[in-house]
Write a protein that binds this DNA or RNA. Structure first.
Lengths: 313, 313
DNA sequence: GCCTAGCCTGCAAACGTTTTCACGCGGGGG
DNA sequence: CCCCCGCGTGAAAACGTTTGCAGGCTAGGC
């Protein structure tokens, strides 16, 4: 025998409630590609942090396209999203993002906003200097970088931090040793080839993100270049990286979950107090030596290009 | 000078529209863990297929917990989801899923439903027999399996297909060579250790999914076991696997995007015609030889357990 | 015992759409 | 010549909830 209420199985209509309360109970996550493991992890942590507050997560892709951003900005307004977290940047557009002017409270991650326009979460890049120091101590002088898209906040900041660190340690940056590309697996895979075919290839390389490091290692693998014997690699990455490449990587690390959690808290604080001054959160990042860097042996021929005959698992 | 309409910047309220039309424009994806690259890829393809139909994707986690399923089933009804796609199964619960009884149209992926209750998308397992044949041709007789959770549709079906294939080829299944576990990276990583410490370890192993294969390879790596020289590995996986482990793996393959696309089409068909007879879609799967299997050399000591001193990238 | 304050209950308005219906007009067919 | 139909416009009802308000009841204080 059921109670009357249970029998009726009354389920309140959240749409009707949202119409009256002005809160839909949805938050949007805007990413270039949810198939990228980093964004997957990000979405996971975000959902965990938002759920206790009664917010469900809507996942949207931009494919890094300006037009998609515009479509989304409108869609998300129509859908009455309570807030949005944007971890995507269409490269090169000088105009401010459509999300910037949206009336939806937003948090931008690794993407600088118009000054004072709203909240942002940024990865600290200061540890890059420690990484360079580490490489120099190991004897490296020709250090390359695969920073990602330079028309993008993350890529540009990393490149600038890298350049400043080299300068600080009185090293010259060879423009042949910079291969920007974007943040995709395939591009970084190709960058390995590009970099090692230079007339004077680097003996150490700095790579910009988890996914890029994964692609870069894949590329090295195909080329038969052994790490760290033939090439030292430092990644600007998160704790996620270790589950993508089967080894402890020397890296400037942030904690993947922390980035999303911080973004969630920033958004929730904004929803609680819409008029609070904009907040800029700096995510800690520390240099952690791993096994992908080693002392330079002068005798070795860096980046010997023999095709890998046998894949390693 | 702007037009009056543009000036007003009229944005229709999708909540109000949903209230009246009875369609919210949201579809839910229920997964155990969006951080798993396979589910990330799945979500990506799903969103691509659903977007043109005006459906936005809400991502939900169950963490494979029955209680979470119940919470979600209620939440998704409140939120007036137009449909849901469930790729998650809480293991071992005899009772039908809470999504089964929900009034929301649903598609179950790799999870059998109560007969005739609704739509499902299932991975074909027939090619497992081809994989076994391949291993036998290479001289293997001691073949192990890491199928995933046996209280789960996917894991159990794979195990049964595997057992049937062995029987068909007149091989005996050693219960020491079966390590179920679940679908997680860590568990499969540990399974490698378990399997190779058996008194009489297998010379070839069948692994149940992308993520499990990744963990299994990671585990082998740590143990210093070379593939395929010391151990042949076949994965039941998708095209995604190649971006997770840096080499062509011998596998029974489905196309990752196809699974999600098929699920999306099934859901859309259901929404168009709620009274159509339930549909059961079988996703094609083909055995594709790669480089993770090799002929058995009788002289070799399978699974020599020397700790890997040098990680391979 | 009476008055007032506080609480509970139930009713009505409002949220922003869609959809239906009525109304007026004009044209075409009977 | 009259009627009917179609078209376009505008008004009104409905969707299911929240919330505010009014009214009635109870309890406490004077």
């Amino acid at each position: 025998m059921q109670s009357a209420a249970a029998k009726l199985e009354f389920v309140p209509n959240a749409l009707a409630r949202g119409l009256i309360t002005g809160r839909s109970g949805f938050a949007a996550l805007v990413v270039p590609d949810i198939a990228d493991p980093f964004f997957g992890r990000f979405a996971f942590s975000l959902e965990q942090a938002l759920r206790p507050e009664g917010l469900a997560l809507v996942v949207c892709h931009t494919s890094e396209q300006r037009s998609e951003e515009e479509r989304l900005a409108r869609l998300l307004e129509e859908r009455q999203m309570d807030g949005l977290i944007c971890v995507s940047e269409a490269p090169g557009s000088g105009r401010p993002s459509p999300f910037e002017t949206s009336r939806i409270p937003s948090v931008f991650v690794e993407r600088r906003r118009v000054k004072g326009a709203g909240d942002e979460v940024i990865l600290d890049k200061r540890s890059v200097s420690d990484a360079i120091r580490h490489l120099i101590d190991l004897g490296h002088r020709r250090i390359g970088i695969v920073p990602g898209h330079l028309q993008t906040f993350g890529g540009r900041e990393l490149y600038l931090a890298f350049r400043a660190a080299l300068k600080k340690h009185r090293l010259k940056l060879d423009s042949d040793h910079v291969v920007p590309g974007d943040f995709k697996f395939e591009t970084s895979r190709a960058a390995a080839d590009t970099l090692l075919r230079r007339r004077s290839p680097p003996t150490a390389v700095f790579v910009g993100s988890d996914r890029m490091a994964q692609g870069f290692f894949y590329g090295l693998h195909e080329l038969g270049v052994r790490v760290p014997e033939e090439l030292s690699v430092v990644a600007f990455a998160t704790d996620l990286l270790e589950s993508l490449v089967a080894a402890p990587v020397t890296a400037c690390r942030s904690i993947s979950g922390q980035i999303a959690t911080e973004a969630a808290h920033t958004l929730l604080a904004r929803l609680r107090d819409p008029d609070a001054p904009p907040r800029s959160v700096l995510i800690p990042n520390a240099f952690v030596p791993g096994r992908s860097t080693a002392a330079l042996r002068l005798s070795r021929r860096p980046g010997k290009l023999t095709a890998a005959l046998r894949p390693t698992f």
